[in-house]
Nucleic acid binder design. Structure first.
Ligand code: MN
Ligand code: MN
Ligand code: ZN
Ligand code: ZN
Lengths: 152, 152
DNA sequence: TGGCAAATGAAAACCGTTTTCACTACTGAA
DNA sequence: TTCAGTAGTGAAAACGGTTTTCATTTGCCA
C-alpha cells in the first residue's frame, strides 16, 4: 500500500493523488478494522471513545470524501438518509444483501451491473459511469427465527 | 382503473385498500401527466400554480406515501438527498439510466434484480424483498455534445 | 524562524422530510 | 337532519444527516 502521510507523499494510483491527512488516517484506521458498514457518525463516535484528541465530525466527513474519491473507501446508500462507508480493494466496489431484520449484510463478490455495461451501451447508447445497487430482504437466520415464532 | 374517491370506494388490488383522498387525487393527477420523475416539492409547486386551493406540502408527502404503498406510484432514489416519484403500472416497478449531464432518464423495461432473485435465494439463502438500482452516466445526446466540444 | 497554504473544528446553515397539533370536512348512526 | 366521532389537512416546528462558514491551528518550506 503506497498511501502515506501528508508529508509530501502521495498514493501512486487513482484519478488524483491523495494526501492522507492526520484525520483521514484515523478514519481509515477505524474502517480498516470494522467489518460492518459505518456511518460518518459511527466513525466519529468510535474515534471519540479511543482517541485522546479525536478529529471533529467535519473532518470525518472531509476525510471520507477524499478517501472515497481516492478509491480506498466506498460510500453505500441504503436509501434511508444515512450514507455508510467501508474499505474496499483500491478502485473496486461491491454491493450488498442487507437483512431488514438484523441489519447484517452480505458483501457480494461480483457486480451485476458492471457485466451489463456493454449491453446497456449497445442497446441504449448510454455510457455507464456509475450506479447504485443494494438488495434488501431477510438473511437465513432471520428467516428461521421468523418461521420459529410468529410469521411476518 | 378501480381507484375511486374516498366516499367508500377502494381499490380492488394491492396489499391493503386505499382510500384515495382529495389531496392524493391531485397528486396523482400531476404524476399522471408528468413524463419525468418528480420530487414531492416539484409536485407541490405544480399544484400551487394550477390549483385554486392546493394541498399543502405535508399532504403531498402523505399522499405519496399511500400511493407508493398502494403500488400506483414508485419512489426512486438517486442517492442525492431527494426522493422522486412516478406513476407505474400497478404493482410493478422499474429502474433507470440517468444522464448525469442533462438529468434525463431512460425507464428500463425489465428489472435486472428480479430475474436474479432465485439464484440469490439459492446461493445465499437470502430472501429478497426489495432493492434499489439506478444507473448513472451519459445519454447519447450528451456523449455527442461532449465529443463535439471539449471533453469531460 | 517567519510566512503561508493546508487542515481543522465549532457553530451555523442547509434542506428534504417527519412530527405535532389544532382545525376542518366527512361519515355514519340516531 | 343533526351531531358526534373519525379521517384529512396544513402551518409551523422539529428532525437529522450533511455542508458551509470562518476563525484558528498546524506544519512545510524558504
Ligand atoms: Mn461491503
Ligand atoms: Mn421511470
Ligand atoms: Zn456495481
Ligand atoms: Zn427492480
Amino acid at each position: 500500500m503506497s498511501v502515506q502521510s501528508s508529508h509530501g507523499h502521495t498514493h501512486a494510483k487513482g484519478p488524483q493523488s491523495l494526501r492522507l491527512t492526520k484525520g483521514a488516517k484515523k478514519v481509515l484506521e477505524v474502517l480498516e478494522r470494522t467489518e460492518e458498514l459505518s456511518s460518518a457518525q459511527d466513525i466519529h463516535v468510535a474515534l471519540r471513545s479511543e482517541e485522546e484528541s479525536p478529529p471533529g465530525l467535519t473532518t470525518v466527513y472531509r476525510s471520507l470524501e477524499s478517501l472515497v474519491q481516492f478509491g480506498l473507501v466506498q460510500a453505500v446508500d441504503f436509501g434511508d438518509g444515512e450514507r455508510r462507508y467501508e474499505m474496499v480493494k483500491p478502485g473496486e466496489h461491491h454491493h450488498h444483501l442487507v437483512c431488514e431484520k438484523c441489519r447484517d449484510s452480505v458483501h457480494l463478490d461480483q457486480c451485476l451491473v458492471q457485466q451489463l455495461e456493454e449491453s446497456i451501451q449497445a442497446k441504449y447508447k448510454f455510457e455507464v459511469r456509475g450506479h447504485i445497487l443494494e438488495i434488501f430482504g431477510l438473511c437465513e437466520n432471520c428467516q428461521n427465527a421468523m418461521a420459529a415464532t410468529g410469521k411476518k
